[in-house]
Amino acid sequence: MHNLVSALQPGDTVPNGPLPDGSTLFERRGRPIILAFAPTEWDPAQAHQSAIFARLSQEFGSGVAFAEAAPEAWHSLDYRGELAIHLGVAGQRALLLLDEEGVLRWKTVVEPGQDIRPGQVLAALQALRPEPLDAPDLAAASTEVLTGGMSRRTFVMATLAAAALLALPSVVAAAPETALPSPPPTDNRSAMLPVELNINGKSHRLQLDPRTALLDALRENLHLTGTKKGCDHGQCGACTVHLDGHSALSCLTLAVMAQGKAITTIEGLAKGDTLHPVQAAFIKHDAFQCGYCTPGQIMSASALLADQHTRHGSAVEIREAMSGNLCRCAAYPNIIAAIQEAQRA
């Protein structure tokens, strides 16, 4: 599927497409609308967005913004839905603001794993916002043409878009890359090595310090943060991954030495939305509390179940085989129950 939205730039007219209520985008012209594409799952790490939402509504005057914008003008859309497919954003989180003419005013597309940057949303809004910054008499200028030819009404919608974006479950946004401070160049590239890692079936080419542990390559360089750092010395098991199908500690593996091996991390265990049986059993048996050691526990447990020596182990054999994964919350009895359930599956 081509990504139509990625090709669209502010100022372009958005092609027609179906909304879930049976209407079409063109039929909606005459008033600005917001299209927000998001997964329906909930992510509590977005709570800070709600906080920004609260601050935004204070700064922009919630009464003004909300009273003028009817809720039906913004559309919270499933990112697996028809319009998402039509616009080429299926599976991606995206937010589009269309003005009265159906022209794209603001868009943001967030790759899986990316996150909102609060400062960027504020910066993006500031850019849309008319001068002066303080005490704008917004209500008095309902048809006034503002910065960039944007109508007062569209601006209010932009505010609402941001608010919606922040309040909706799992909707996150990144502002344009230009808003980022670019990191200063690293002054010592000479020591870096080209390293190619095969992770979850995908090849990644990196330039790494030879000292980089596989764990740090995953977490810091590739932002695959499901693999956890608990001790960094092979004494807790939180960093467990599979190397060629066997459980191994990524903290004691130099990334450069993991080349040529099939690396599986917790992010690669489920098949799409379908959990691995061990993952499902962990939820069912409440086999974790804080959740920090959990990816390592699950990687060990799934390897244990794939291994002929340990597959059919009794409770006491599970105890021994899983002892390399410390759980300070001590969900151990529930982990045993979860593994036994997965053994039966």
Binding site: G234, G237, T240, L243, H246, S247, A248, L249, L252, T253, S300, A303, L304, T310, A321, M322, S323, G324, N325
Partner: peptide
Amino acid sequence: GASVQIRNM
């Protein structure tokens, strides 16, 4: 000795 993961490595 050690753990499954360490013995595998």
